[in-house]
Amino acid sequence: MVKFLLFAILLISTFGLGSWAYKINYESRAASQRVKSLEKAILSAKKERKILEAEWAHLNNPDRLRKLVEYYFRELRLTPINPDNFISFSEIYLNKDIEKTPAASLGTSFSEMGYDK
């Protein structure tokens, strides 16, 4: 009787272990497949990023921007930066009424920046 019980337990545990090993095997294979495809995706994303970075650099080419600024001068009125563009704090004209205008139209309001203190 004891022997039969032992035999039965062994048999069941063998089947149990076998099916567990089978499951793990398939899971790990699936996982490695997924890793492989993810790595492929990462690689292609990186390649894409590289192209986009190159394109961004090309679009920001100073010569190109200069031509665009000249072309759209009427709309943008941009001129090259000049030392005259720097002024001291005392020269900033602060209008108190500026507080009444909606902040959205001003960007960050002066009070937030702490300039009127």
Binding site: P80, I81, N82, P83, D84, F86
Partner: peptide, 14 residues
């Protein structure tokens, strides 16, 4: 110098 000075963060000292 007038063009590149501001780009190199040199504050004018007129």
């Amino acid at each position: 110098i007038e063009r590149t000075g501001p780009l190199m963060d040199i504050i004018p000292e007129r």
